[in-house]
Design a protein around this nucleic acid. Sequence first.
RNA 1: GGCCCCAUCGUCUAACGGUUAGGACGCCAGAUUUUCAAUCUGGCAAUCAGGGUUCGAUUCCCUGUGGGGUCACCA
Length: 462
Amino acid sequence: MKKIITRFAPSPTGPLHIGTIRTALFPYLFSVKNKGTFILRIEDTDKERSKKEWEDELIKGLGWLGIKWDEGPFRQSERGDLYEEKIKKLIEDGHAYYCFCTKEEVEAQKQYLMSIGESPVYNGHCRDLPKETVDKYLKEGKPYVIRFKTPVNKIISFNDIIRGKIETNTNTMGDFVIAKDFRNCLFNFTCAVDDMEMKVTHVIRGEDHIPNTPKQILIINALGEKEPEYAHLSLILGTDKKKLSKRTGKTSLSDYIRDGYLPEAILNFIAFLGWNPGTEKEIYTMEELINDFSLEKIQKSPAIFNIDKLDWLNGLYIRKMQIEELTKACIPYITGIKDEPLEYLVKIVSLYQERLKKLSEINELTDYFFKDKLTYEKELLLWKEMSFEDVKKSLEKIYDVILNDKDILEEANKETNRGNILWPLRAALTGKKNSAGPIDIVNVLGKEKSLKRIKEAIELIK
RNA sequence: GGCCCCAUCGUCUAACGGUUAGGACGCCAGAUUUUCAAUCUGGCAAUCAGGGUUCGAUUCCCUGUGGGGUCACCA
């Protein structure tokens, strides 16, 4: 069987989008599963919008997720010679031609055609210009573009692995532009040439490329090769059912990294947006994904990005982490750290491991460990029917218990309701409505600090 | 507007043409509990509409509706 070659071909024109990750993940999984080759190709033919910083972010992001490529990164900006050669060949063979129409003329045509309800395509004005005229215009230095000579009224058909047969009449696409000049080729052309030259067997990409596919097939065929297989992934939508955008939520991977999502959770979540193994298992490592992946099980309909499920998954992966590893991951998020030893931080983080959904939450949850003095309303110390007088008595009692190293729980159980002891203690130690268990906190905070905070609480209600 | 794609709980989804339409997230209730989580138990909740084909349609076909994509000298 032919060796499988897939590619991920992003444009470095902005932050790494969460939807883009999926168009990287699926061809990656497919190629690794089939022991194929996965190529990273940077499509940076748009010199205005392509930036090195975006490429760096892209590569960093893929590394963070654990998506590894076998070949590349290849940059289209470095492949100009190849494109020039191919475009010349197309012109020589009569598959492409110079067009001298101005942008304005073409735009006006398009508007007109749309207004009368027809496909807005180029009218072929320069399609059959006599050679002498072309030479004359070129000599005069008249601005031009190069258009592909699309066959008239022909059905281009391909069998999409995910969607089945897709047919397009060439009349709906017309003679599209493939290059501004020999050194400035456009997307459909460079993409087709590269897929062909790199011997890509499976093009797996977003469904926004479906309309481009027949154009690319035409180009590849005109260059004398057979087109690859195509698989078009549905898009990821925001909660407003529109293409995921900044308006409806965070879209770039860096935002999610900053919030403290784990790569395992992002990967697991993204993989299950539009794919599932057909079983009820849904917690998957990369290894397992590779093992169970198949293009046939990919969903045709678009999926809405549901942050609640990601949060749940992330919490799950956080709970599975080794505590020391989790602590190290949390440290960058804790703003109050001075020179506390790692083992102390480990104790703090372990108090919150099962309460954490995102690493970024650790700061607010544990800030009381890093403050000298807590500020809170004295009402916070009140538990159910207690009066301030009751609270004061409770706190004084706990003070005595801790001072004399007595068992806190045992003492609390002597009360009619142990909340009478435990709630004011918790509030005094943390200054918060919700927290980890007070006895655990005393153990981490230490006797001296705990006593100090209880004393401060007693002062507060005086 | 032309062309193309899509359609099962709120969301992600399962169901060789025959299932009480299953699971997960979320939500609600209960258990546990000093709070919040975590955990466990239970509950609510879906086949877009109308026509066919068939003994039987979530599943196949047609039409409609809805949503999305695309129509660049962007990718």
